[in-house]
Nucleic acid binder design. Sequence first.
DNA 1: CCTTCATGTGTAGCTACGCTACTTGTTCGA
DNA 2: TCGAACAAGTAGCGTAGCTACACATGAAGG
Lengths: 113, 113
Amino acid sequence: MKAQALHGHLDALLLAVLEQGALHGYAIIEALRARSDGNLDLPTGTIYPALRRLERAGHVASTWSTVNGRERRTYQLTDAGRRALTGERAGWHEFQSTVGRFLDPGSPSGSPA
Amino acid sequence: MKAQALHGHLDALLLAVLEQGALHGYAIIEALRARSDGNLDLPTGTIYPALRRLERAGHVASTWSTVNGRERRTYQLTDAGRRALTGERAGWHEFQSTVGRFLDPGSPSGSPA
DNA sequence: CCTTCATGTGTAGCTACGCTACTTGTTCGA
DNA sequence: TCGAACAAGTAGCGTAGCTACACATGAAGG
């Protein structure tokens, strides 16, 4: 998967992963990798700054905890984050349908969903 | 539509538009706008550099012509461009399915196509 | 005649944002 | 003891689309 394809969609992915339950950064990376069959293997330098961004935006909240002597910052979705995710989903569908109209051969209307 | 969502997919769009016939830059902008119901209203500063990039990559070829005293640079797909478009389509489908797995609620397998 | 708008191409510089490469620290198995 | 997995983090880079501009012609309107 081309690296820059993700541009602008990472926030939505992170919110979607956290929708199913709070996770810490490292676990988020593993969840993305697992649920995408290895297609999304994102480096920490991508995830951690993105999570800080989401926290500054109020979409996630973080709490520190210590597990086996290791410091974990666990992130959970806020109500605003849940609302944001709804918007991101809508945006994704619009984007998908718009680009698909050009790139999907057999779907003329552009609205398969 | 968020602006940076397009990142990494513009080349594919341009190749797809040119697949249906040669067009000059301005007409490409209009074609994108028309076929996307106005969702893709791309500025010239996006299109022209992108076309130059595609030409340097050998995916399109350009020919000058004069129409009504106006200089037009018409772009057409090369064979390499056609092959590239096939790859871009595959990449798009992979991307779509990967992200959709997280953002599309009701499609568990992630392979609707 | 002059202004304005649509047509048409183009560039310089900005900015957003994911990536590379690195650092720090702990636990666990070889 | 040493390396690998776990866990978090930052500085700086690079890509690539966007903003704002410049330039030129033709048609329409006053």
